[in-house]
Simulated assay, not measured.
Amino acid sequence: MDTLLPVLQNILTPQGGWSLAFLVRIVLSVLLLYALVVMIARAFGARTFASFTSFDFLINVAAGSLVASSIMGRNLAEGALALLCLAAVQWLVSSLSARSRRFHDVVDNPPVVLIEHGRYQERAMRRARISQQSLDQKLRSQGVGDVGEVRFAILESGGNVSVMTGEGEERPGTFPRRAG
């Protein structure tokens, strides 16, 4: 117990100790960065902080880390500038991706067909690292009780599984260019 109390006190005390200046700095940092994030989202579009692709996910993680380190760090301007640069890079990459199929294929994961006409595509599932149990759970969550009902189940680049049911042998017009 003699060791526990000082360790706990050390964990719960900021580096320079508790002070009014410390609390004001944290509150102002949070408010300013919150306003900056809102302005960035409005200026660069909702996709800036939405998880669509693996690249977008990485940008979101980096942005969260920058915001946290800016709030807790000494210099808010450095973190704000880094966050603006990160948002600009994300905007540039998403703009180029929307204009160029080749660029899109470099920065984005391709969709993968996991079920085709009621049959699991086991090789594609292994490459995508999706178990049959996980895929069955996705089917059930979309109201599908039998894999035989599924025309196509596609792992999208953002990680969601799209499920198409019904009759027909033809592939849909939105079928992935590079299926797994």
Rank of each mutant, 00 (worst) to 15 (best):
S157G: 14
A88T: 12
A87Q: 12
N160C: 09
A68K: 10
R140H: 12
A62L: 14
V67L: 08
E116V: 00
L114E: 06
V144L: 04
E78T: 08
I154N: 09
I59Y: 06
E122T: 11
V89E: 04
D108S: 15
A88I: 07
A68N: 10
D146R: 07
R140P: 07
A77T: 06
N60L: 14
R42H: 05
Q90R: 08
A46G: 15
V112T: 11
F57N: 14
A88Q: 07
T48G: 01
S54A: 15
G145T: 02
S134E: 15
L76P: 01
R119P: 00
L81Y: 10
R119M: 06
E116Q: 10
E156L: 13
V144R: 04
F152E: 04
D146T: 02
K138F: 12
V89T: 08
N160K: 14
S94D: 08
V67I: 11
E122C: 05
E149L: 09
V106F: 15
A153N: 11
P111G: 06
R126W: 03
V93W: 02
S95E: 13
D136K: 03
G159S: 13
A62D: 09
S94T: 08
N60M: 13
M125L: 13
Q121W: 03
V93Y: 08
S51H: 12
Q142D: 09
S70R: 06
D56P: 10
A124G: 13
A153M: 11
A41T: 13
G148Y: 02
C85L: 14
R126G: 04
V93S: 11
S70M: 01
V113H: 04
L81M: 12
V106M: 15
D146W: 03
G73V: 00
T165H: 00
S70W: 02
R42K: 12
S94R: 07
V67H: 03
R123N: 13
S141H: 11
A63F: 08
L81V: 12
V113T: 09
M125K: 07
L81E: 02
D56T: 09
N160T: 14
I115V: 01
A50W: 06
